[in-house]
């Protein structure tokens, strides 16, 4: 009997502490830019889902490709149909770990690097990105700018439009996480 009680207490105690370490959001912002002399293309998603485990610095980003909005809807359709093949690969996912130790209880801004797997168009790449963590009033802001080479993810750009779409896409991530209850 005692045994069981200890087990239960341990379980409950641990699960509470485990859930308190998770920060999350479902409205993270990711935007990307493709700049060529012929055409500038930009798109934004405001529904990136992010989970951060402050206990072990693990972080996961997931964005539905169809949530990216383009000013030109024809481009949006081509992005999904021809390049990302969103019916086959609906999500882009990053799962990795922040390399620096951060005191998440103290307000402040920290420069960080994060290493993990970036999965776009069904192709996984091990990447390290520079970024920033801003801790403020119980919320954690994650900011990063990085580049994605389309060829690294086997995204094929036909010769006809090669002048209009950059080979390297600039990506900007800005998300604010709050404790998960």
């Amino acid at each position: 009997m005692k045994n069981t009680i200890i087990m239960l207490v341990a379980l409950i105690g641990l699960s509470i502490s485990a859930s308190a370490q998770i920060y999350h959001t479902a409205s993270g912002k990711i935007s990307f830019f493709s700049k060529t002399p012929v055409e500038d293309i930009d798109a934004k998603s405001n529904s990136t889902v992010v989970l951060l485990n402050t206990n072990n610095n693990e972080v996961v980003f997931k964005v539905q490709n169809t949530s990216f909005k383009f000013p030109n809807k024809l481009m949006e359709e081509h992005f999904n149909e021809k390049y990302m093949e969103s019916e086959k690969y609906p999500n882009s996912i990053f799962s990795g770990k922040i390399n620096e130790t951060i005191d998440y209880t103290k307000d402040g801004s920290y420069d960080i690097t994060v290493t993990g797997k970036l999965n776009i168009h069904g192709v996984e790449q091990l990447r390290t990105f520079n970024g920033k963590v801003v801790v403020k009033d119980q919320s954690i802001q994650l900011i990063s700018d990085f580049k994605v080479k389309v060829a690294d993810h086997k995204i094929d750009i036909p010769k006809l439009v090669v002048a209009k779409i950059a080979e390297v896409i600039d990506v900007h991530v800005d998300t604010t996480l709050i404790p998960k209850k």
């Binding site: 999350h24 889902v49 989970l51 997931k62 359709e77 609906p90």
Partner: peptide, 17 residues
């Protein structure tokens, strides 16, 4: 964390374009 992600953001049906 990845599994938790699936609970947090279950993969939605994608519209066919």
């Amino acid at each position: 964390l990845l599994k938790m992600m699936e609970e947090e953001a279950p993969s939605k049906p994608t519209p066919v374009f």
